[in-house]
Design a protein around this nucleic acid. Structure first.
Lengths: 218, 218
DNA sequence: GGGCTTTGTATCGTAGTTGTAACAGCCTTT
DNA sequence: AAAGGCTGTTACAACTACGATACAAAGCCC
């Protein structure tokens, strides 16, 4: 279980973050000001902290000083996306920053990326496979499976959206990058085939004709 | 149940949208201005928001900033169909836009398309059949039914507009694409037949002579 | 640079899907 | 009741999409 501390004085924002991270499988704690945040930090171990810079009482920079010695990675949340703020945050040792307003995808991506860099990630399971996005490992029945980077990304997408039919476009976009608009190549099919072969998941990964692919539920 | 937030200050328009979406099976909430919309957003989870850009108080762009972080897809409703507005809306992260005045069919089509792209398929039920547009599956008495893509789309249309007689033109347009203006082929009848046969729905799908087809209500 | 892995294109075969043609039967109007 | 248009059904041929293999290009690690 990955514990995340959210320090943010705007309830609207903190609730958004909490909701989305909780839904993504993280355990969240929210603090509205620097003082209570410091208390929480003293009493608990966190795997990640999201800090608003501008806070009543102790500000984000102060909290960073508490957290860094503990080895807790920090992502700053800042309203002003000025270069100055950004540089200042990173200079002081933040792992990343995110500018309000932000897209939820971006938030999740950064959280995951930071956790990954720090050796922590979310763990997903489907059938006989356990995928650890932090450690970048895939185990099948406890035995490691050797996947290439793209195969890993593809599997991650399928597992993250288990049961849903994912459109070819969507998969191309999420695995190969947003600029890619290919629908006429066999690349995706090829990678699906390689996944099926490596995992012996010929039945578990279902083809949805003319739509895309879907990871069986159950 | 799919929840849709409609933010629109012209009662005539908002009522029109609400009526049609409600009839199509969505649960709607209407807000007349940006402030109340923000309140609603805070207190509820929505699966989709339809935002008029020009609003008293907070405008559509402001609301977009609240909604995007939550992962709520957004469709802008704009009076001015200028290229500039469209681009601006999409650039800021809207999923789609629709220009006033609009056809109801277009509205429904865009709503559906956006929901689908965002993986929020609706689950509909009629008689012994459950259709999940997200997973792209159809179950009859719990057993999966194998439908081809066009059969699936056709069934989806019938179920979404249960009880209403759908014109042949309308069905052609929604299933086969808007550019198609064929009324002289047997294609639609053929697909209706295939649906009736696969689902044993000889009575449930009714023929409306000279008009089109209708899915029986009860 | 050499050998390895990874990736993507080209290609072919196959399975699944689709629509037209053709005809039979039905509905409605006159 | 007859005529004329509409719909139901079948069969088949064209078409599209996917699975699979081989191979070449690109990246990577010594």
């Amino acid at each position: 279980m990955i514990r995340v501390l959210i320090v943010e004085d705007e309830p609207l924002i903190s609730r958004l973050i909490e909701m989305n991270l909780t839904r993504a499988g993280y355990r969240c704690t929210v603090a509205n000001d620097g003082k209570t945040a410091a208390d929480r930090i003293e009493q608990n171990d966190y795997d990640l902290a999201l800090l608003d810079i501008m806070l009543p009482g102790l500000d984000g920079y102060d909290l960073l000083d508490y957290l860094r010695p503990q080895g807790v990675p920090v992502i700053f949340i800042t309203a002003k996306g000025t270069v100055k703020d950004r540089v200042e945050g990173l200079r002081r040792g933040a792992d990343d920053y995110i500018v309000k307003p932000f897209a939820v995808e971006e938030l999740l991506a950064r959280v995951e990326s930071v956790l990954r860099r720090n050796g922590r990630g979310s763990v997903m399971q489907a059938f006989d496979v356990v995928l650890d996005s932090g450690a970048h490992t895939v185990l099948q029945n406890g035995a490691p499976v050797d996947l290439t980077p793209n195969e890993f990304l593809l599997l991650e997408q399928l597992m993250r959206n288990r049961g849903a039919a994912l459109y070819r476009d969507t998969l191309y976009e999420r695995v190969w990058g947003g600029d890619r608009a290919e629908t006429d190549t066999r690349t995706l099919d090829l990678h699906i085939m390689r996944l099926r072969r490596k995992l012996h998941w010929y039945d578990h990964i279902e083809t949805v004709y003319r739509i895309g692919y879907r990871l069986k539920k159950e």
